[in-house]
């Protein structure tokens, strides 16, 4: 089904966006990667309010906007805001340059625009970033992962050029991506490896899974910016923390889903930096580091938002 934004009507666009703008400017709407509408005391998300629904299909029918694009835009906003618990209303805070994106992405959508390839084209952009020599995490990405990412991008480019790519070719790339991800041991590469492995599919089919794969990788990239403000010891501890998270996430589970034995037993340094004692001891210092890195993170988030806006406008 081809979607046409706002039923190809400027009047529909205005009538849908203005109520959202009013509540967004009042900070009474909370970005969420899930469509949230009238949720039992929970504030609506921007998209939930726009479509007045928490159902994907209903959202797309009403707005003509792919739910996967809405999810990506909400995800970028969640990366740049702080949710403040409030008893009677939603409350969010953040850099105004990032908060502006809350309605910018809606304003950027031309009535009648077909946005089905916006998320796939953004996926292509992400793969380009990973492959750039100046990618901040480049030294952490193994040659095998780079090779797999390059193969995926090459197949996507063929597809975008209208050429067919066989199932066999994709299977070969998927095997290479899984092998590269499985053999990678770098603390900072795990989320990137998961992204590359999970996204290794024809570009027209990646929208639905994209944000779920992108979100942890993007968070990982933002967290890496904090290392510029850390001591060598703190950087080492952060690496052990990431390895601990990976060990817990990938540990074999028994028939009822429990991890046995404790995956951190084999990673004593990870166990140390994930202990409540360590986290409590470092809480103040970590807050200092996060504050110091916030400007760099905000710049990256804003640049990413601008990329999405360009793709929306060019649809």
């Amino acid at each position: 089904m081809t979607l046409q934004a706002f039923n190809s009507s400027q009047a529909v666009k205005v009538s849908m966006i203005e109520p959202v703008r009013k509540l967004w400017l009042a900070r009474a709407v909370v970005p969420d990667v899930d469509l949230v509408w009238n949720g039992h005391g929970k504030a609506s998300s921007i998209s939930g309010l726009l479509g007045r629904t928490d159902d994907r299909e209903t959202f797309e029918q009403r707005t003509g906007i792919p739910a996967d694009l809405a999810k990506l835009c909400e995800c970028l906003l969640t990366m740049g805001i702080t949710k403040t618990p409030a008893s009677d209303a939603a409350a969010i805070a953040g850099n105004e340059a990032l908060l502006a994106f809350g309605t910018e992405w809606l304003d950027a959508i031309a009535p009648g625009a077909e946005l089905g390839m916006t998320v796939p084209r953004f996926a292509r952009h992400c793969m380009d970033l990973i492959l750039r020599p100046d990618f901040p995490l480049a030294v952490h990405v193994s040659p095998a992962l780079v090779e797999a990412a390059g193969q995926i991008r090459d197949l996507w480019d063929r597809e975008l050029a209208g050429q067919s790519v066989s199932r066999g070719e994709w299977r070969g790339v998927q095997r290479a991506a899984m092998s590269a991800a499985a053999s990678d041991g770098d603390a900072w590469a795990y989320r990137i490896a998961s992204f590359i492995e999970g996204i290794a599919w024809p570009i027209a089919t990646v929208s639905h899974e994209f944000t779920g794969l992108f979100e942890p990788m993007f968070f990982n990239c933002l967290m890496f910016e904090e290392t510029a403000f850390m001591t060598d010891e703190e950087r080492s501890d952060r690496a052990h923390m990431l390895l601990g998270w990976k060990a817990m996430a990938t540990a074999p589970r028994d028939e009822i889903g429990l991890v046995d034995p404790d995956p951190l037993e084999a990673h004593p340094e990870s166990a140390r930096v994930l202990s409540a004692e360590y986290l409590e001891q470092m809480m103040g210092r970590m807050a200092e580091i996060r504050a110091a890195a916030q400007g760099r993170k905000d710049t990256i988030i804003r640049e990413t938002m601008d990329t999405v806006l360009r793709l929306i406008r060019s649809a």
Partner: peptide
Amino acid sequence: ARLVSRTRTQLAA
């Protein structure tokens, strides 16, 4: 069988 994979790539394999 119980499947333990959590991505489309791993599940397909």
